[in-house]
Nucleic acid binder design. Sequence first.
RNA 1: GCGCCCGUAGUGAAAAGGACAUCACGAGGGUCUCCGGAACCCUAAGUCCAGGUUCGAUUCCUGGCGGGCGCACCA
Length: 566
Amino acid sequence: MRVEDFRGEAARVIARHAELESDAVERMLTVPPKPDMGDFAFPCFTLAKKLRKAPPAIAKEIAEKAAGDLELLRGAQALGGYVNLSVDRTRYAEAVLREAVSAGEAYGCSRDGAGHTIAIDYSSPNIAKPFHVGHLRSTIIGGALVRIFEALGYKVVGINHVGDWGTQFGRQIVGLKRFGRPEDADDLMSLNRLYVKFHEEADGAPELVEEAREWFRRQEAGDEVALALWRRIRDTSLDYFKRIYERLGVRFDSYTGESFFNDKMDAVIEEAHAKGLATVSEGALIIDLSAEGIDTPALLEKADGTTLYLTRDVAAARYRHDTYGCDRIVYVVASGQSLHFRQLFTVLKLLGHPWAKDCVHVNFGLVQGMSTRKGNVIYLEELLDEARERALAYMRGEIEKRLVLEDEETVAEAVGIAAIFFADLSKQRIKDYRFDWDLAISFDGDTGPYLMSAHARIAGILRNCGLDPDPDADVAPLVEPEAHRLVSLVARYPDVLREAGRLYEPSVLANYLLELARGLHASYAVLRVKGEDAGKAQARLLLFTAVKQVLHSGLTILGIQSLERM
RNA sequence: GCGCCCGUAGUGAAAAGGACAUCACGAGGGUCUCCGGAACCCUAAGUCCAGGUUCGAUUCCUGGCGGGCGCACCA
């Protein structure tokens, strides 16, 4: 008896009595809006036309026939134009919990993506400058997608297409040469100071800007002095970025940034010529995309012969496809870049790459209001520090029955990051949103800390109930509606991950976890463990173990720590 | 100006074209000697407007209105 057998039986029984194909019925099955209405619902509206009967009458007929034909299901009832079917709750709990607990950490994971590789390009900051909060959203969403697809069995290549080439490095070099000491190149804070200094000075001194351009020209021309300086600045910056990624719990398989593709662009240009796509317009080399429904042409080369963002992305896409053999390339980049990616994918198609159709722009809206007390636009580190402070203040000030912890600072750091991550991941990525500290950090409401607390609360039960959990416990005592609700939620988890992956939408998972946590809290007063007889206590422990496992798994995928105590 | 995207209670979010539009925060009222009160229960409040397709529209189409973003030598 497996979890999907219940749905399978529902489909079979309905199919038999409605004279339809089982597969078709299975696709039509939905879930009733309220748990007491049943576990599966079959809408009879489409049958109405064919049978020339009213949907409620059809439902009644099917329900009556089906009622005597059930094995794993308990009831078939007509309601409105629906046939509602209920599972045998004990057998369902048995199937769900046994499967969840025996799979352990792997519960919810599937092999759907076995044999497929996905490259996910995310975060991709400009590293001459400090990590700006503007890049945070891509980092958060991209990181979650990496873990979602891994859970679905895909091989995932996380790529950070770092902006490590461009005029900004020329500016950085001038700042260093004019206002700093050579050793400042090894310290990011000094570099930042000098970068700012450059901009202050350059305001009234255009020759500085020209000097910066000259340094970048030397870089592009392969001048060893310029390249050595660039390399040193780049390494200092990358080290700093990697430290921040560690703090955020984000890992990349590749840091092939823009500079990596410098020697791979000529091939793109040549091929565009060979395919007869490239034309010269206003001195620049372009591909006209108007026949493809895009008014703005794709620029391959500026009038001065240097290449552009788009050319580099074409080279990068080809490199990724060839190197990783990936059958999908996902770009987690803000919606503002939509035109760019339409152009990119169209150019790839015109260049004759059939896999262009497997490139996806996973876009997302703008975040407003992400600033610290100091105000202004801010850098990520300051934001994370403030998150930790606010989390600590909240824990000390608002929580009545909090545990005494030695590692309060560590917990606060995790809570702060959870608050920021979840505020982002709980919303549909396409939408703009306003970040609000109080809303994000509260332990009440739809927040990361709320989910963490649900997890810690179960951990508390397991810790304090005075029992050794029995993984083979009999589930028969789980008769309460609250228990059934939790079982159903646990059962849904694998499909939730699939849906999140299908839509590239971590919020599907985030909202599911909220539902699970609420279900847990709603059951908490009813499903006591301590002081109950051994049978009930063990059954409930089994249920809570499964819920805790799913919370842990889901939170980990979202990039949020699930602590035992907080 | 043109193009793309977004409009759901005061606020933040959910609803493959399906049942009475769901949930949270905030507001108002209540519960419980609570294994972690970081809880639970109740109440008030909503689909931007006008048409259309459909047995059925928050969802799809058309046109408005409001907001965001983008529109060749930056990335």
